[in-house]
């Protein structure tokens, strides 16, 4: 009996250990293959040159610029909304319980909505409803300006997708701020809003930063929401105004590997683009982890 228990224990150890090993091995294999095969083509020129010869040669500069612009615009809109929502949930919501539950449910739901549905929403709401509405007022000659895909609508769509990330991160930081801070500030005669502005917000800066970085890491890699809200296959010029379309790293990977005229010839370019995309998202996630680590350390002290 004792022997059987022992062997079953070993068996369980073996099986679960194998599961763990398989997952970690898959991760390492993916990283290694992309790094090795993309590394050959990863040059300074690749990062700074335009695509050439029907995108079978050259670099990915416009895709990098497009991605950076997208995540910047996205953060400008999404981070304030996320931060304020988190402030509401931690600092204000104690008074109205039901509203807070609604907001919490909405945030959780929003985090689970498939990204392609966000894309549809962007098309239906931003482009067809708001954009076409603006065009009806602004452009008299019937020429479409806002009622078509562009970088503004893509960024707004992406902002909605990444708002839950910001909310969750900032909320965690706000909850970590000791209640004594609030009590001390209020006892000195500061109002609630003054307390938030002078005490809570400065202490929440690392959290807001982490949330922003995580949101950017997410937004830089998502393709489905921008498929029909603003991304372009190829553009000869960089986007210069909000109503322009843009190129994007993730979308570039998608079209090179599935729609390209010569998929085999661009293999190297594909791997190198994937490598750039991975480097961007991983370094952002890594920075977030570091910031969070120091934040926790400081909180413990």
């Amino acid at each position: 009996m004792k022997q059987k228990t022992k062997w079953l224990g070993y068996l369980l150890f073996g099986v679960t250990g194998l599961c763990t090993l398989l997952i970690v091995a898959a991760l390492i294999y993916m990283l290694a293959e992309i790094t090795v095969r993309g590394g050959h083509f990863f040059t300074w020129e690749f990062l700074t040159a335009n695509p050439e010869q029907g995108m079978t040669a050259g670099g990915i500069f416009p895709a990098i610029v497009g991605t950076v612009l997208l995540v910047l615009l996205m953060s400008i809109v999404g981070v304030p909304i996320g931060t304020i929502t988190a402030i509401y949930m931690v600092e204000y919501a104690k008074n109205d319980f039901i509203f807070m539950k609604l907001v919490r449910f909405a945030v959780n739901t929003l985090a689970g909505v498939p990204s392609i549905v966000f894309g549809l929403f962007g098309l239906g709401f931003f482009i067809q409803f708001i954009g076409s509405g603006i065009d009806k007022v602004v452009s008299t000659d019937g020429h479409l300006v806002w009622g078509q895909p562009n970088i503004l609508w893509a960024s707004l769509t992406m902002a909605l997708l990444t708002v839950p990330v910001v909310i969750v991160t900032v909320e965690e930081t706000l909850r970590a701020i000791p209640n004594e801070y609030r009590a001390a500030s209020l006892a000195l005669g500061a109002t609630k809003w003054q307390t938030i502005r002078k005490i809570i917000l400065p202490n929440a800066v690392p959290g807001i930063l982490t949330g922003t970085i995580l949101a950017i890491g997410r937004g830089a890699g998502e393709v489905a929401p921008i498929l029909f809200t603003g991304v372009a296959y190829f553009l000869p010029h960089l986007p210069s105004k909000l109503s322009d379309q843009f190129m994007n790293l993730g979308y570039h990977v998608y079209i090179l590997s599935t729609q390209s005229t010569d998929v085999e010839a661009t293999k190297g370019l594909q791997y190198a683009t994937v490598l750039v995309l991975l480097m961007v998202t991983f370094s952002l996630n890594f920075i977030a982890v570091i910031v969070r680590y120091f934040m926790r350390k400081k909180a413990i002290q």
Binding site: T85, I87, Y88, F99, F118, G124, W193, I196
Partner: peptide, 29 residues
């Protein structure tokens, strides 16, 4: 003070409004 709480509350409502809007606009189309 009052203004701040109103603004904060209405921004917090955005995520809830977005869920509703997704319902409305995806179904509408």
């Amino acid at each position: 003070e009052y203004l701040a709480s109103i603004i904060i509350k209405s921004v917090a409502f955005v995520s809830f409004a977005v869920i509703l809007l997704i319902f409305v606009f995806v179904f509408k189309e």
